[in-house]
Design a protein around this nucleic acid. Structure first.
Lengths: 235, 235
DNA sequence: TGATAAGATTTGTCTAGTTGTATATAGGTG
DNA sequence: CACCTATATACAACTAGACAAATCTTATCA
C-alpha cells in the first residue's frame, strides 16, 4: 500500500466508496470532470483509474451518459501478495481473525508433497475464522513445516498474525504460488461457524505460498461464504 | 561564491530570481528542458538544482504540468482554542476552503462509536482542502449523523461553512471534546492535493466535537502539511 | 400533448508536452 | 576504494488541449 501511482490511489479510493455503499450499486458516479476536480488531477488520470475498475467489473460506462456502479457483492481480490487483513482494509472493512486451533501433527500426503517435505514430517496446523466487520466470511486452515519453523506456533500465538510470525522466522515476504478454486457445500460444522445454512455454497481455495526463491512455506485451504464474498483474480 | 558545483550555482541563481521577483509568486518556471538549454547543462543537473529549491519550499512541481514558485514559504502556528480562519486572518493571510466531496454513506466502526450512534447508521461525509492565500494547508474530512441533521448536506452546500450549517440545524456552539495528534506519511493522493511529495510528513489530528451538553456532533480528521503548519497547544 | 430540432453534457480518442524514475557511463576527489 | 558530479538515454506517469460520438435537456412548433 505504499508508493502508489495517482491513478491507483484513486481507483482504490473509489473502490472503497463502492464497497462502503457511499456509491450505491447501480447508481451513477460523478462525471469524469467532477472527479478530476475532486482529486485534483487531469481527466485522463481519472479515466485510467476508471478503466481499471471497469476491468474488475466494478463499474461500466456509457458514452454520453455516464459511469455506473455494477451490481455485485463484496469483492475479495487475489493479487500475488494478498494478505487477508490488508485486503479487507482495501475494501474499507475492518478485518479480524479468531483462532480455532493451533497444534502439531503429521503431514498428510497432499500436504507433504505440496510443501516438498518428507512423508510423515511434522507440521504446524493452524485453523481459524476470518471476519469482516464482525461478520464471519471464511474458514481457513493451513500447515507449515515444523522442522523449518520450530517456534512458529508460539509466534502465531503471541502475534496473532501469520505474516508477522513468519517474519520473526526470517521470512520477510511470501507470495501466492498457486491457487485453485472450487465450490463445495457447507458441512453443518462449517455452516455453524459461518452463520449460514448447511449445504449453502462455499468457495474453496487451495493455495500454496512460497518465499521468493520458490521454496514452499505455507499450504492451506480457505472456505469462503459464497453469500458474502466473490473472488476476483488478477495477474 | 566560488568553488561551487554547477547545480549549486544554478540553484542560487534561480533563488535570486525568485527573491528579486522576476520569477513571480505562483508563476511557472521554464520547463526543465528550457532551463537545461539556457544553462547549457544536462536536464539532471537542472533537476538537482530544482530539488534543492523544493527542499527549501521555494518551489513545488507537478508531474506533467511544470514547476511553480511557492506563494509563501513560511511556517504558521496555530493555537488550540483559536478558530482556523481567525488564526490565518490574524497572520495576515486569506483563508479559503475547497469542497472535494459531500455525500452520505454508512459509518465505520470508529465513526459510529465516536459519535455514539448505532452501527451502520448513515452519516454525512464532508471532505475538502483548506487554503491560505491559495496555498493548500490541510486536508480534512469529517462525518455527522444523518439522522440527527437530515438537511445538513444542503446547508453546507449553500453556506460553504460547517459552523453556519450547524447553526441552521440548531447547534449554536460546539466545542472540541478531544483531539489526538499523530504523524503519518502522505499518500500519493494526499501529496498531490497538498503539493508536496508522497511520504512527506503530515500532522494527523483526530478530533471529536460535541455540543455543550456533551453530545457528539462531528468526528473527523485533518491532515496538515508538515512543511507549512506547526500546531501549538496552549492551555 | 407529442414530435423534432438545437444545444449542452458526457464519454471516447488522439496528439503533444512535462516531470519522475531508472540505468549506464565517465571523471574527479577524499 | 567509495562517493559525488555530470552526461546520456529511455521510459513511465501525468497534464494539456482538441475533437468526435453518444446521450440528455430544453425550447419550439404543429
Amino acid at each position: 500500500m505504499k508508493n502508489q501511482t495517482l491513478w491507483q490511489g484513486i481507483a482504490s479510493d473509489l473502490e472503497k466508496e463502492i464497497v462502503a455503499g457511499s456509491l450505491a450499486r447501480g447508481s451513477r458516479l460523478p462525471t469524469e470532470s467532477m472527479l478530476s476536480q475532486r482529486y485534483g488531477v487531469n481527466r485522463h488520470t481519472i479515466r485510467k483509474a476508471l478503466s481499471h475498475l471497469a476491468e474488475k467489473s466494478l463499474i461500466w460506462s456509457k458514452r454520453g451518459s455516464g459511469v455506473f456502479v455494477m451490481q455485485k457483492p463484496t469483492i475479495y481480490s487475489m493479487g500475488e501478495r494478498v494478505r487477508f487483513s490488508q485486503n479487507l482494509l482495501d475494501a474499507g472493512r475492518t478485518p479480524s481473525r479468531q483462532k480455532l486451533s493451533l497444534s502439531q501433527r503429521l503431514a498428510t500426503h497432499e500436504e507433504a508433497s505440496s510443501l516438498k517435505i518428507k512423508k510423515n514430517s511434522k507440521v504446524h496446523h493452524y485453523e481459524g475464522i476470518s471476519f469482516a466487520d464482525d461478520e464471519p466470511i471464511a474458514l481457513f486452515h493451513s500447515v507449515f513445516c515444523s522442522k523449518r519453523f520450530p517456534a512458529l506456533a508460539e509466534y502465531i500465538e503471541d502475534l496473532q498474525s501469520v505474516t508477522q510470525a513468519l517474519k520473526k522466522c526470517g521470512v520477510n515476504d511470501y507470495i501466492r504460488a498457486s491457487t485453485y478454486v472450487s465450490a463445495v457445500a457447507a458441512s453443518s460444522l462449517q455452516a455453524n461457524h459461518l452463520r449460514i445454512k448447511p449445504n449453502d455454497p462455499l468457495l474453496c481455495t487451495t493455495s500454496l505460498n512460497t518465499d521468493q526463491s520458490g521454496t514452499p512455506i505455507e499450504f492451506g485451504r480457505t472456505y469462503f461464504s459464497g453469500k458474502h464474498v466473490t473472488l476476483s483474480y488478477e495477474a
